[in-house]
Design a binder for these strands. Structure first.
Length: 846
RNA sequence: GCCGGUGUGGCGGAAUGGCAGACGCGGCGCACUCAAAAUGCGCUGUCCGCGAGGGCGUGCGGGUUCGAGUCCCGCCACCGGCACCA
């Protein structure tokens, strides 16, 4: 920029642009989607809605920059884009804040929402502000209650007593999905303990097969990682249920095994100490054993998940003085108890085959129980070998000697009718044999457990159930919904192991529909219930007669593009898939997967580590916005890397993005060709660059390569600058064409800058509505292309040739090229591969 | 242990089996300036060479191919998920 220009022009100033355009957009409401008659094709682009814990932070800035670029992209492609926003506003932080500072969770929540909403407005997120929802509004959570009643009536919501996860810090139960692999709560970080309680569950396990199998439909459209995580989480396994007659017990005990082929190798049985079965079996044992059992059970219940999951732990347990009978060979098997068997998986009891299961082997070796090999792994198709590749002999892989169970493939031995069969065949044969005898059958099992939704906290959806004087469950009639939360002010919200609602005596006391006295359920629902269907509420956010309008659902749903963090890979996404299938089965929806495509954006980190206020490596979004402006922050977020990768704020230059935006903006200021000029009269080279740009950019956007789109914008800005300063000059129509192209695409990243450029170029707001042109095919064909000439695969020369050149012409030119002559010398040409017009490879010898 | 992903300059990252390192950051140099900032221009993988030019180079080792960052096989490292789930 020259000195004169400084004198007579206003320079790029993001503060001025933000102040100038926000009120205009407020007035225009450019992203309103209320016109049902709009005939453009539709897209539903949804960003995972935020939890209102304080103001927006850098993570939000990344997520909403990405979601907004995607939404804006489809609008520029001529789509009617639904891009709504709301708040996931029930939950513990509000309640904990209220306890800490006094006051009401509602006040804290709605103040934060107001702040976040204002920040999103400033951030220029292209939301349809007419569809805002808050899950903590009675108008919203009424439909959680409706959903619960619907599910109850179908037997999908039920109450049972079981061992559940208890968070001693938040003083509430948690779903399995909310407990991390290390046994801590994903929310509070506390070590979760097991507690026996009666709680409400949703029968997600009924949907396990569909939740698993329908993941195949999402292949290629959801991140592979998320699909894998969900498959792991559901954890389906195939095997058999086998009935073992128990001496002194009428009913046989069923065990689940994935290896019915190894039944002849079973040498004992094990039951989970915390199962009802263990308590029953031990009741006939000696007084000494019973006492020992009581101690052991107490010990086990104290053991944290973190310890219990440690497979290296010493095996513990003891003999229950009972015997089962192997249905395959009639053998008597001692029954032991040990905490390596889990009460809530399979049937809480196993048959132990120490030779072929490492856990059983560890136990057998610890307590001197017999080990019987029934699979000869040395006869497998790929038998085990030592370090030098020599096949191992049978006695070298003997589990009893090596301590290593042989779980792999092999051929059955010591197994009567199964002898000689390979593993897979033997499994099928064993199941058939069991079937014939009526002592077993094929079965499958899941890691997935039913979804525990009761929470002993205040700030959530009341469960619409009451209990009469006999304690029987009575549903709140649909007409009486919502069951509103009592005012939180004045209620003691401190966690004390039972719901604060229990203290709301007046609220709690009610009557059944037929007039009998009753008390309400005082627990509230897991907030993941709220978020499992919120994407449907956006379609008819103010409908007071139904959860969502089926006609609107038909019009917009399912979500075409969902965008959010990987932290919800299992929790929210699994629940939303489940509830969608339930709503489908109840006849409310035509589709049964909620999110057609999913994109997980990466995190914003600092110096390679997750940002954390307590560790001091923290960047405040507000500071960045104040210093560099919204556009520069948004552009930086998306230019830094492909959106699914993490962005390290230490590696980026927000100032650099700002420099680029100023450069682009100045190009628009310098355009001298009048608005409406015929671009066909413009400089052909620059026009070709614009055509290529509009050819490439949509493909890049669809592939989420937004960082490359920013790079293309920078390239086009650079060549346009050159055309103005040292080329065809500012009055050339192609310069205008290029500047308009930059404005229209820059809108994805920097809406303020793009809007101001658009205006400077003589157009009316808003650039967000400008549909990108289809490039002229003639301009995409180059006049000349650079053909590369390789000798033995190494580039030795380049030739400018017409794109229509024939193979033999190009080959002739290549053989005469200087670089060819130099590199070939007196060597012999063996072969020439020519792919006109791009390249020639000459293979030489000698 | 099982499953999945990722490895490219000083850094972030580009690259339908066909010019590796686009674009940017950082660095160096230059112009403008009394000076600085801002702005603009140029150079910037590495080694050899004054240069022309050449050697090497996408985690490691093989393979397919006229040609491999890209495809195949085997490793290594890091990241993530699952894991006493029978």
């Amino acid at each position: 920029m020259t000195a004169e220009r400084d004198d007579d022009r206003i320079d790029y100033d993001f503060r001025r642009l933000e102040a100038k355009w926000l009120p205009v957009w407020d007035e225009l409401q450019p992203f309103d989607t209320s016109d049902d008659a709009d005939e453009r094709p539709r897209k539903y682009v949804l960003d995972m809605f935020p939890y209102p814990s304080g103001d927006l932070h850098m993570g939000h800035a990344e997520q909403y920059a990405l979601g907004d670029a995607v939404a804006r992209f489809w609008r520029h492609r001529g789509f009617n884009v639904l891009h709504p926003i709301g708040w996931d506003s029930f939950g513990l932080p509000a309640e904990n804040a209220a306890i800490k500072r006094g006051g009401d969770p509602a006040t804290w929540t709605y103040e934060n929402i107001a702040q976040q909403r204002e920040s999103m407005r400033r951030y220029a997120a292209s939301f349809d502000w007419s569809r805002v929802i808050h899950t903590s509004d009675p108008e919203y959570y009424k439909w959680n209650q409706w959903l619960f009643l619907e599910m109850y009536k179908k037997g999908l919501a039920y109450r049972k007593e079981s061992l559940v996860n208890w968070d001693p810090v938040d003083q509430t139960v948690l779903a399995n999905e909310q407990v991390l692999a290390d046994g801590t709560s994903e929310r509070s970080g506390a070590l979760v303990v097991k507690k026996k309680l009666t709680q409400w569950f949703l029968r997600i396990t009924d949907y396990a097969d569909r939740l698993l199998e329908d993941l195949d439909k999402l292949e290629g459209r959801w991140p592979h990682k998320v699909l894998t995580m969900q498959r792991n989480w559901i954890g389906r396994s195939y095997g058999a249920d086998v009935d073992f007659v128990i001496e002194g017990r009428d009913e046989p005990v069923t065990v689940y095994t994935t290896r019915p082929d190894t039944l002849f190798g079973a040498t004992f049985m094990v039951v989970a100490p915390d199962s009802d079965l263990a308590a029953e079996l031990v009741s006939t044992a000696s007084a000494e054993t019973q006492a020992r059992f009581a101690d052991y059970l107490a010990q086990v219940q104290k053991t944290s998940a973190i310890d219990r999951q440690n497979a290296d732990r010493e095996k513990t347990g003891f003999f229950l003085e009972r015997y089962g009978v192997n249905p395959m060979n009639g053998e008597r098997l001692p029954i032991w108890t040990s905490d390596y068997v889990l009460a809530d998986y399979g049937h809480g009891a196993i048959m132990a085959v120490p030779a072929h299961d490492q856990r059983d082997l560890d136990f057998a070796r610890a307590f001197d129980l017999p080990v019987r090999v029934v699979i000869d792994v040395t006869q497998a198709e790929e038998p085990p070998v030592d370090a030098d590749g020599r096949p191992l002999a049978f006695d070298e892989v003997d589990p009893a000697a090596t301590g290593e169970a042989t779980a792999g493939d092999g051929v059955l031995i010591n197994s009567g009718p199964l002898d000689g069969k390979p593993k897979a065949e033997a499994i099928a044969a064993a199941i058939e044999l069991l079937g014939e005898r009526g002592t077993g059958r094929a079965a499958k099992n899941y890691r997935l457990r039913d979804w525990l939704i009761s929470r002993q906290r205040y700030w959530g959806t009341p469960i619409p159930v009451m209990y009469d004087e006999d304690g029987a469950e009575v549903l709140v009639p649909e007409a009486d919904l919502p069951v509103r939360l009592p005012d939180g002010e004045g209620l003691d919200l401190k966690p004390k192991g039972s719901s604060p609602l229990g203290a709301a005596t007046e609220w709690k006391t009610t009557t059944t529909p037929d007039g009998r006295p009753a008390v309400r359920d005082t627990d509230t629902m897991d907030t993941f219930v709220d978020s499992s269907w919120y994407f449907l509420r956006f379609l008819s956010p103010n409908d007071s007669t139904q959860a969502f309008d089926p006609a609107a659902a038909k019009r917009w749903a399912p979500v075409d593009q969902y965008i959010g963090g990987i932290e919800h890979a299992i929790l929210h996404l699994l629940y939303a898939r489940f509830i969608t299938k339930v709503l489908h089965d109840l006849g409310h929806l035509e589709f049964d997967e909620p999110f057609d495509a999913l994109m997980n954006q990466g995190m914003v980190v600092l110096d390679g580590a997750k940002m954390s206020k307590s560790k001091g490596n923290f960047v405040k979004l507000g500071d960045e916005l104040d210093q560099y402006g919204v556009d520069a922050v948004r552009t930086t977020m998306l230019f830094a890397s492909p959106p699914e990768e993490d962005v390290d704020w230490a590696d980026v230059s927000v100032a650099g993005s700002g420099k680029f935006l100023a450069r682009a903006w100045r190009v628009a200021q310098d355009v001298a060709a009048p608005v409406g000029v015929d671009f066909a009269d413009g400089d052909v080279e620059l026009r070709r660059a614009v055509a290529r740009f509009f050819d490439e950019v949509p493909k890049l956007c669809e592939g989420f390569k937004l960082n490359v789109v920013v790079a293309k914008l920078m390239e086009l800005t650079n060549v346009t600058r050159k055309a103005i300063d040292s080329g065809v000059g500012p009055a050339d129509p192609a310069v205008r064409e290029a500047a308009e192209a930059i404005a229209m695409v820059l809108d994805l990243f920097a809406p303020y800058t793009a809007e101001d450029m658009w205006q400077a170029l003589g157009h009316e707001a808003t650039v967000a509505h400008a549909v990108w042109p289809t490039p002229d095919a003639a301009l995409l064909v180059e006049e000349t292309v650079t053909a590369i000439v390789q000798i033995n695969g190494k580039v030795r020369d380049r030739l400018e040739v017409p794109p229509s050149i024939a193979d033999d012409e190009l080959e002739a030119l290549a053989l005469e090229a200087d670089g060819t002559k130099r590199a070939v010398g007196d060597k012999q040409i063996v072969k020439v591969i020519t792919k006109a017009p791009k390249f020639v490879n000459i293979v030489v010898k000698g």
